[in-house]
Design a protein around this nucleic acid. Sequence first.
DNA 1: GATTAGGGCGCAAAATCCGT
DNA 2: ACGGATTTTGCGCCCTAATC
Length: 358
Amino acid sequence: MSMNQENRHVLVANKLLIAMSGLTRWTKRQEGFLYEQHHYNIPKPFLDLKWTKSRIRHLLTLLSHCDDQGIISLVENDMLANYARTSVRSLHNNLRLFESVGLIRYSVHFSGVVTIELIDYLENYRDLFEEADTHRSKTGYTSLWCGMVRQLMDIDHVNILRVALRALVQVERDIHVQSQDKATLTYDEVRGFLPRYCGHRLAVKGMLDQLSRFFNVHLVENTKDFLSALKENAALKRRMHTVTRPLMFHVKLEAQVDSKKIRETERASTLISWFDLREVARDYIDFDRLEVSSSSLQSLSDTYGFTACDEVLRAIRNDFHQYGELLQESDIYQLFFESPILYLNERLRRHTEKLAIA
DNA sequence: GATTAGGGCGCAAAATCCGT
DNA sequence: ACGGATTTTGCGCCCTAATC
């Protein structure tokens, strides 16, 4: 019923994930010093806040429901609080807090319904900056599958949540950007950003164990394996500072929550579905005259998902089967022949709304 | 002006966090 | 593992604003 549906892929600046997980205390590096707050250029309001469990959950909740301008319009408090698994009271407290430090603006419309605006959304929350005519990310952002975010909300212990956020950044870096087959966190790195009191080897191991719900976690705790892992990964070696324990964790995302994989396979399937339509339609019309680029189809796939795209494309295919070239005369298909992507967008939007109500 | 509805806020209990 | 500190939450009072 709510027109605000959850984003399928939730985009979060790495600097936010780092800030929320806690900045590392280990600033010394081989080449000098590295302060995460400067390195990531983390906006001040994010540094000033203490990131408690409910605050992390609420911020992720906002990011999961905002549009590409960082706006969530007319949404029920209950819905947001439920999503974050907190009371409405805490949601209010945090919304007020976020507003007072300049992270958001919000207004209450009528009982229990608010509109929220994330301030400087692109710069602050996505790390995107204008450059020439396009946007560039300085320190990167991570795409999270909505199912993954929902699982994050189920984590009870803040510190496990913190480790999860770091692991996600690392997966983005090592696997998605650097194309390695696994991401690595060392014991010392984990200890660096967690509060001092939970730095014990067993505690850290236990936390990583609990992440195996949505990460594929592999422990490397034997000295020989540790050293050989270090040897074959130059980037890892470079970012090491201290080694107090030969203990590291290889993490991978489970396929069902891997935003990148999901996106890629869905894109490919949507393209195939489009070509199936083409096969049928070109018996009746000059299909290639429509000039639909694969990149716009991919973006439809990202926004609405393969299932919805396929259902709509199938329906169009059936209409071609049934009506053939007569389709060109029909009013409802007029927009399709003038601007196919606009038409598909419109139809997909209605399609997903219908599903939401049902 | 009485009544009511809704949000803010203080209080205190419960849950969690954190330092040792 | 223990205990003080902090966060989260529900309860209920108070204020405001809308309605009759």
